[in-house]
């Protein structure tokens, strides 16, 4: 390509300008790097993730956390490919998903109490029976050892973490019963149950009280302890999952070999960049596991695990 002499000056100037900009940015960034952390995964615990990210960014202005929710499985695939930094998972790994590079940090657990009117003779249900009730497959208490009366299903706001939790842990793909009563707060749910002998609903552990009867599930009573040990069946763990593979794509995803060679003299080496990236990600994970982070997820209805 032939270049006229008139064009050389502006081109040279623009190169110098860009180099200067880059140099200035580089120098300033030595002390204050701006970082972006990409987080993706479970939709059903997304509210916890958002709350943690928001609070973390308040005290770490140099860090931006972008949270997407598209499900635990796509999140896991993305983190393995280095497309995102943290996968949020609301389930345990399958055997064929696990390998030695996956690090699964437990962030919290949550569980749902299944509640009925105190006069209801039923005191224990299996997970399958709970699923049948909330999907509408079973609609009379007599089938479950209760009186011959129709079951009134009380649900929570479809956007709430309890509703999504029930879908996640219990319904297993089945649809929530269509003509259920939807009450949009814990108080309203308790009111509905207390005022109707045939009602059944669900609440996070912290919202349960003596005005209603809390059912055992598969013979286990809900408590902070039985959720922490996984013995209570309507409970789940959620994890921040990172992929700790030294040559993972994350390390080089923004640089081709060609550019590496050209810029090698100016940039920090890749190991350093990679190290800083990992430190930023770890500082967010450490925040989620800190007293402050655990308080945030407790405020949203989960059980602290640290």
């Amino acid at each position: 390509m032939a270049i006229g002499k008139r064009k050389i000056l502006p081109i040279t100037l623009s190169i110098m300008f860009i180099l200067l900009l880059w140099g200035a940015y580089f120098l300033s960034s030595l002390n204050n790097y701006h970082s972006s952390i990409l987080v993706g995964g479970s939709t059903t615990v997304h509210n916890y993730t958002l709350a943690l990210a928001e609070e973390f960014m308040k005290d770490n202005e140099e860090t931006s956390i972008y949270c997407e929710s598209g499900g635990s499985t796509p999140g896991l695939i993305a983190v393995k490919n280095g497309a995102i930094d943290i996968a949020v998972m609301s389930r345990d790994l399958e055997d064929d998903e696990d390998d030695k590079y996956i690090k699964n940090y437990l962030i919290g657990k949550d569980g749902l109490g299944i509640i009925v009117h105190p006069s209801n003779p039923v005191s224990n249900l299996t997970v399958e029976q709970v699923s049948d009730i909330f999907s509408g497959a079973v609609d009379n208490w007599s089938v479950l050892g209760g009186s011959n009366s129709n079951i009134t299903v009380v649900g929570s706001d479809p956007e709430s973490i309890t509703y999504k939790g029930l879908a996640d842990i219990v319904l297993n793909g089945a649809k929530f019963k269509e003509n259920a009563i939807i009450a949009d707060s814990a108080e309203k749910i308790l009111d509905e149950i207390v005022s109707n002998p045939d009602a059944i609903g669900f609440l996070a552990l912290r919202d349960l009280d003596d005005s209603v009867k809390v059912l055992d599930i598969n013979g286990v009573h809900i408590s902070r302890e039985t959720i922490l040990t996984d013995r209570y069946p309507i409970s789940r763990s959620f994890y921040f999952t990172v992929y700790d593979k030294p040559d993972n794509l994350m390390r080089n995803k923004n640089q081709s070999d060609f550019l590496d060679r050209i810029l090698g003299a100016f940039t920090m080496d890749n190991d350093k960049v990679h190290q800083l990236k990992i430190e930023a990600v770890m500082s967010f994970i450490d925040f989620a596991r800190s007293a402050e982070g655990q308080e945030i997820i407790e405020k949203h209805g989960a059980i602290a695990v640290y």
């Binding site: 390509m1 270049i3 081109i11 623009s14 190169i15 860009i18 900009l21 880059w22 940015y25 580089f26 960034s29 204050n32 790097y33 701006h34 970082s35 972006s36 770490n60 140099e62 860090t63 923004n254 640089q255 550019l259 050209i262 810029l263 940039t267 920090m268 960049v273 990679h274 190290q275 800083l276 990236k277 430190e279 930023a280 770890m282 500082s283 450490d286 925040f287 596991r289 800190s290 007293a291 982070g293 655990q294 602290a304 640290y306």
Partner: peptide, 28 residues
């Protein structure tokens, strides 16, 4: 040449992206 400038600019932006802070938190 334009392509090279473009590549350089892109590479500068791309190089700057992963520069991240070092900090550590303490578990509860």
């Amino acid at each position: 040449m334009k392509r090279k400038i473009f590549l350089l600019a892109v590479s500068i932006i791309m190089t700057a992206l992963p520069l991240l802070p070092a900090s550590s938190g303490e578990p509860a």
